[in-house]
């Protein structure tokens, strides 16, 4: 119980090695896979409808460009920049956002 109760630590991001992250072609990239400073484009958003609508309400649309600003000191949540404003997202939520690197 003790570990669950204080279920936080300073370790590496727990989602680093996710089983289902890579499909066979090895192409799918999630927002949670990125390092601070990387810039990507939103390809698709998964998860519950509530979450998808919430992201839309907060202004994250498909095709938008996201820059990962940083991860919080305890590695979660992460800070992203969309259209010039800063948003905080939990890593467990950003796992549901599929992104791609910009072409150039």
């Amino acid at each position: 119980m003790g570990r669950k109760l204080f279920g936080f630590g300073f370790g590496r991001r727990h989602n680093r090695k996710r089983r289902h992250r890579l499909d066979i072609s090895g192409k799918e990239l999630f927002l949670s896979d990125l390092q601070a400073g990387e810039r990507v484009r939103v390809v698709a958003v998964g998860g519950s409808e509530h979450f998808r609508i919430r992201l839309m309400e907060m202004g994250i649309l498909i095709g938008d460009i996201i820059e990962v600003s940083k991860y919080a000191p305890l590695q979660d949540p992460m800070e992203i920049i969309v259209k010039g404003y800063h948003l905080a997202l939990r890593v467990s939520d950003s796992e549901k956002i599929i992104v791609e690197y910009l072409k150039d």
Binding site: S48, H50, F51, R54, L55, M58, I60, P77, E79, Y85, H86, L87, A88, L89, R90, D93
Partner: peptide, 10 residues
């Protein structure tokens, strides 16, 4: 509970 998407205002 609801999804955590929070703005960090300037």
């Amino acid at each position: 509970s609801r999804p955590f998407v929070m703005e960090l205002p300037p």
